[in-house]
Amino acid sequence: MSDTFKALIADKQGEDFSVQVKEMAVDQLPEGEVLIKVHYSGVNYKDSLATIPNGNVVKSYPIVPGIDLAGEVVSSEDERFQPGDHVIATSYEIGVARHGGYSEYARVPADYIVPVPEGMTTREAMIIGTAGFTAALSVQRLLENGLDKENGPVLVTGATGGVGSFAVAILYKLGFEVEASTGKQEEHEYLKELGATRIISRDEVYDGNLKQIASQRWAAAVDPVGGEPLASVLSQLKYNGSAAVSGLTAGGKVPTSVFPFILRGINLLGIDSVYCPKPTRDKVWLQLATAFNPGDLERFVIEELTLEQLPEALPKLLQGHARGRYLVRIGE
């Protein structure tokens, strides 16, 4: 490898904030057992927050954002990984407290790393990324809590986003009836192609009036939205139903009551993809290559970007204009 390489660097010094592609040296990378030549990364909501001055996710500057990366091991001090291995690293402190995936090279602790499953490429791994992994983890938790195809439809909120899109496709692959909620009329055909049985509006999930308990409607829900819409979903879950919650785009406060929990025995399942234990992480990535494999992954790609194109694309997630996934091509 050359002495220097390209990376997208966000820096904040006083009132000055910048996001630029710059040259870096290997000795500027953080500590870690495994040096990776990055092939691909992706764009997540947290990545967009890391590239604005008041995003409040970056621990210290300068930082190379990119909470996801997949590529080839260059060198390793850990016997679990050898040069030439194709690997995935997502979340933990990557891209917020240590340099991340928007770089031609990354150095990562071995415990953060998952082998790319057999039959999957590094490109496919990053089309999936944290968003697809979070969706798969949500579905896995619902299945572990008794979800069955005979229970009735499963609701997916925020269905055109990264987590929502993958949740729709995975549930369809597993044979579930899927109701997808979105406020984007123009994306109905996209959701049907992913496998949604029915498309419903945001107002049909939450019309602005909260009830402590309402008619039983859904066997389960995958919810990356949170806030008052989640409270409305909880009030409409069927007996013993579960909601897998991974986001808060509608807010962090959920004004619910105990009634759905004590009268219907429902479950509120918190989904954390950041510090998910490695055994679970390995298992879910294997599921994504096999039983949860949603088929044609290119359907999820909005656009493939280079490092130089990232500064223009990153704000779109904060504006709610994106659907599916932006893929970032870093190297060969």
Rank of each mutant, 00 (worst) to 15 (best):
F5I: 13
L8E: 08
I9L: 12
I9R: 11
K22I: 11
M24Y: 12
E31S: 15
L35E: 09
V38C: 07
V43T: 05
D47A: 03
A50W: 01
T51N: 04
T51V: 08
T51G: 06
P53R: 02
V57L: 05
V58C: 06
V73N: 02
V73F: 08
D78P: 02
E79K: 14
H86E: 14
T90D: 09
V96F: 00
A97T: 08
R98Q: 06
P109W: 13
P117Y: 12
E118K: 14
G129L: 10
S138P: 00
L143R: 09
P153C: 06
G161R: 04
V163Q: 06
G164C: 01
S165K: 05
S165R: 09
K173D: 10
G175M: 13
F176E: 12
L191T: 02
K192M: 10
L194E: 06
A196C: 03
I199D: 01
Q212C: 02
I213V: 12
L230N: 05
V233M: 03
K238C: 14
G241R: 12
T256Y: 08
S257M: 10
V258N: 15
P260A: 12
I262Q: 09
I266W: 00
L269Y: 06
S273H: 07
C276V: 14
K278S: 08
P279A: 00
D282R: 11
A291Q: 15
E298S: 15
G324N: 05
G324Q: 08
Y326E: 02
L327C: 02
